[in-house]
Design a protein around this nucleic acid. Structure first.
Lengths: 112, 112
DNA sequence: AAACGTTATTCCCTTTGATGAATAACGCAG
DNA sequence: CTGCGTTATTCATCAAAGGGAATAACGTTT
């Protein structure tokens, strides 16, 4: 095979005041939190260390005008993590853009 | 200022067989090479170490079906670096896509 | 043959990021 | 009031990336 496979690739994220706010990894984390109801379980399910996941969520919550994830410690089950309405809103917004981005990349890959 | 400035940002590159081939940094390096005619000067002008620049060009040349940069050692001036026709071709192709990407990002930033 | 400035390559050190372990804090259930 | 599983935080360690320095190789020019 002489002809090599060439394609256009990229990464996409949302910034707030120039700081990284939401990329694909953090979005996936939000999804897992919604499904599992626990930050620890969400992290493990992604092969992520709890600490990294925790700092990610902390950063997200601090950057945003209002928190995307509500964390509770203690209580039934030891604690829990839940998406807020804001969190679901940004998740949808990101998905929308990401979908357009895939189309963009595919289109320009074919034109190479 | 309560309202924070939110925007969509991203990075774009061309892959060959899944390997990083050309991103914005390498493209800038190609431009400097065309302008300066020297890999060392190009690297320095970007605040890049010569070694990193050299490995980048080496990787680019090895991945591509034919070299993008022609390096010559010895001779008048000690040596030189020149873009090939293939190099100019890919530089233009990348610029085209990058320009569309800027439009894409701007459009979706406004929609946030 | 000597000089010159670049390409080509190796070595070591620093720095940065990531990781795992360990532990405290918390609040409901029983 | 004890147990439980989670959130919250600190610490030491390890791997990977990056940079500077040093040096060889090269071929034209003088």
């Amino acid at each position: 095979m002489i002809q090599k496979k060439m394609s256009v690739a990229g990464r996409l994220w949302i910034e707030i005041d120039g700081n990284n706010f939401l990329g694909s990894g953090r979005i996936e984390l939000l999804e897992k939190i919604e499904t599992l109801g626990s930050l620890r379980k969400a992290a493990i399910s992604m092969g992520l260390s709890y600490r990294k996941a925790y700092y990610a969520i902390r950063s997200v919550n601090e950057l945003a005008p209002s928190p995307l994830v509500e964390l509770k410690q203690g209580g039934k089950g030891g604690g829990c993590a839940k998406l807020t309405a804001t969190g679901r809103k940004y998740m949808l917004a990101y998905h929308e853009i990401a979908q357009q981005f895939v189309i963009f990349l595919t289109k320009h890959s074919k034109a190479l």
